[in-house]
Amino acid sequence: MSSDVRFTDFKSDAQPTWCPGCGDFGTMNGMMKALAETGNSPDETFIVAGIGCSGKIGTYMRSYAIHGVHGRALPVGAGVKLANPDIEVMVAGGDGDGYSIGAGHFVHAVRRNVDMTYVVMDNRIYGLTKGQASPTSREDFETSTTPEGPQQPPVNPLALAFAASGTFIAQSFSTDAQRHAEIVKEAVEHDGFGFVNVFSPCVTFNDVDTYDYFRDSIVDLQETDHDPTDYEDARSRILDPGTEYQGVLYRDDDSVPYEESHGVDADMSDIPDGAPEDATDLVREFY
């Protein structure tokens, strides 16, 4: 790993097409800063994304990347990490991508505890498809497809991760630049599956869960007596439906990543001897 990497080294030449003011800008900047501060470099990093506004992030960051399909980013990320344990794998998603069609993959990725980071840009709406209710939308949130609201309680992604025996569960706010980067950095440094749900406001289609709302509502766990290694305290806060927490809610310092517990420590990215030379060169160039 490199010690002289700057977060700007992770910026690609592609210009983001997110709406001006989108929370995803801050989310991405924090991801890049966390990667740089943990000593990773673009050629040691693999970004995996699914579909939705978050799916564009691999284009805007300079690293190896795959833009996958809706809800399937996590199994791809796990495959990349197990094929080459030396590479830093960061998976990016949205609340629709991760907690709806991808919910099954999310739960199983958490319980397998592969050593990678999952950053979810939670704006509580489907933004790319023009404003439908998402799994984390409020029960009374009115949209064109739910004029009376979804009429069901929102998914609690922190509780899903906790129930699946997550070893690192955190939440951040995209516009709180320093704290967001610090939290993602902790997730990257964690030995196991680091999960960060990020409040990333959609300024175009969600006029309820706004920047002002989160600024007024967020309780930063740094300002409380919370101990993230205290299982019972973590559970009470994760199951608290009335508080928007920022910080690390739960961390298992005895976490053993899947790779270590199953002896997966070899780089399997090379093509076996006997494969066509052009195929070997292609795969080596890819990795």
Rank of each mutant, 00 (worst) to 15 (best):
S2Q: 01
D4T: 14
V5S: 04
R6H: 10
T8K: 00
S12K: 07
D13E: 05
A14G: 06
C19G: 06
D24G: 11
F25Q: 01
N29T: 12
N29L: 05
K33S: 13
K33T: 08
L35P: 11
L35N: 03
G39E: 09
N40L: 08
E44H: 14
T45V: 14
A49P: 13
A49K: 12
I51T: 00
I51P: 13
G55W: 11
G58W: 10
T59G: 11
Y60T: 10
M61R: 11
I66W: 02
H67A: 15
G68V: 03
H70M: 07
R72I: 00
A73H: 06
V76L: 08
G77S: 05
A78H: 07
G79I: 00
A83W: 07
N84W: 10
D86P: 04
G94R: 03
D95M: 12
D95Y: 05
G96K: 01
G96M: 01
I101P: 02
I101Q: 07
G102S: 06
A103L: 00
V107M: 13
H108I: 06
A109L: 02
N113Q: 05
D115L: 12
T117S: 13
M121T: 12
D122I: 10
R124F: 09
G127D: 01
K130C: 07
D140S: 08
D140N: 15
F141Q: 04
E148N: 15
G149S: 05
P150V: 02
P153L: 15
P157M: 06
P157C: 13
P157D: 01
A161P: 01
A164R: 08
G166S: 07
I169K: 04
A170D: 10
A177L: 06
A177I: 05
Q178M: 08
K185M: 14
E186A: 01
H190P: 14
H190V: 00
G192N: 01
G192F: 08
N197Q: 02
S200I: 03
P201D: 09
C202A: 09
V203F: 04
T204L: 12
Y211W: 07
F214V: 04
S217C: 08
V219K: 02
Q222K: 15
D230T: 00
D230I: 01
R235M: 04
R237L: 10
I238S: 06
L249T: 04
Y250C: 01
S261A: 13
H262S: 10
G263M: 00
D265Q: 09
I271M: 11
P272D: 08
E277F: 10
T280P: 02
L282S: 10
R284W: 13
F286E: 09
